[in-house]
Amino acid sequence: MQFATGSSPHLAGPQSVTRVMALVLLALVPGTLAMLWYFGWGLLINLAIAVITAVVAEAAILLLRGRPVAATLIDLSAVVTAWLLALALPPLLPWWQTVLGTTFAIVIAKQLFGGIGFNPFNPAMAGYVLLLVSFPVTMTRWLPPEVLSGNLPSLADSLHMIFSGTPPAGQTWDVISGATPLDQMRTELSQNRMISEIHKSPLWGDFGGRGWEWVGNWFLLGGLFMIWRRVISWRIPASMLGALLLVAGLFWAIDPETHPFPAFHLFSGGAILGAFFIATDPVSASTTPRGQLIYGALIGVLVFIIRTWGGYPDAVAFSVLLLNMAAPTIDYYTQPRIFGQRKSNDA
């Protein structure tokens, strides 16, 4: 009688990459719905464009590389990348820019490095940064959240704007678009206005920008869900947000009139989304427990530095990419003490 062979363990747990990615997508749902609520149809259209582009691009490259297509697509990693990128894009971005950014993320940042598992940079953020430096105007043309404008563009108008790149007849971009709270804060601070003055603007909510703060809360919920389901560890989000809070708090304590309240940093821009969903991308992040703390904290500090003194309003993408580069080095120097290895202090 002949039997099947193979190395132990002969048991396998229920996990799979597909399952991990599906949980990430599930965790993104509340925040995504909140963004839809505040920013309207454009986001949904972007999402559709990005996901379709990502899947097509991934399939095409896999075919060219002679890799299994269906078995790879099923891992959903391309969908996650596209989804994250779409959430970071302004809701009315011209369609071809979304296509370009997504294609860059999948083809250049991911597949040309060897596909899932081999990309040194977070693909979504690589695509985002490409678009940000290439198309600064459209990439900073955000919509004001629904709570401010009171009426968001209709589905037809959104489709028109995204696919034609022009505002609907009789309107201008200036009327439709609005600055993000980070942008606003930046512009006004550069005009030497005091935080207390800036805060009188209707743009401000309880602790961040109106609308934005709630988007952040829903992403936070999704992030906590991922920690609970052990999809991500608490270390990167905690250290990143903790460091951001700490540094922001320090400067706020020094001068609350030129430095916004720390919670503002937390709930504006991409901090929450970045902390739970982007910096935690396992492939490009640090993997040692201590390394993750350092990696997260450095991202948090960088976010504050670039937001405060840098040339761009938000900094999550840049900070993540910079730390992606440092991750292998961080890992090398933060190897955990193994079982039975002498503790350094009793050597």
Binding site: G115, I116, P282, V283, D331
Partner: peptide, 18 residues
């Protein structure tokens, strides 16, 4: 499938390896 460096193995390793 390719390793995605999720670190699950680090969490369960009784020898505390990477």
């Amino acid at each position: 499938r390719p390793c995605i460096r999720c670190g699950e193995c680090v969490k369960v390793c009784p020898a505390q390896l990477l």
